[in-house]
Amino acid sequence: MKIPSLVSPRLAILGLVAGLSLLAGRLPAAAAGQEPTAIAVAAPASATIGTAVPVQARLVSAAGPIPHASVDFLVPASFLGTDGEMKVASGITDAQGLATATFEARITGALQVKAVFSGDNTYAPSTATSSMTVTGSKQLYVPDIGIRLRGLNSSPIAQSGTVSHWLLSGWPIGALLVLIWSTYGAAVFFMSRISADAANGPEAAR
């Protein structure tokens, strides 16, 4: 996946947007003593599940970029009847106020990536969202089962991680049994020759 070009052309736009919103006074109401802040988030418009999605946020105040601030990235999620936003990544802003992180999208559909700055003693909190579409149908999670030797310690449902070799499948046990039982069979065969010779007395053997 191509890294979104947040740094060069879009960086300017992001800065512009953040600056404009500050100027327009559209910042959320800040608590007493906190400087208002603005955040902008950039994410790719589309992504495939299972790949790393880079996201970037720029945090500014009226005085310029805010460095060393922690920014969280959240996506909305709904699971087993519970709706919420789950944190998927976080980053620390640099001197340009840029926080960069990657996350792996696993849920398909339209995704609103939300960048959240929670605020601190100096700065007021702020949030921003960016839309992206996640597609794909690949099974991603690979059960971590270590190494299995098929025929020795493979479970009723074999999974990946199974070392398969003709020597390891079940039949060597069967072959061993066949070998032993055919040996028995040979002994029984010789035994049957005893009764076959029942007519001959010991004298005839001479």
Binding site: M191, S195, A198, N200, G201, P202
Partner: peptide, 9 residues
């Protein structure tokens, strides 16, 4: 089993 003690047996 019909044992007679013959050499074959």
């Amino acid at each position: 089993a019909g044992w007679t003690g013959s050499a074959v047996q």
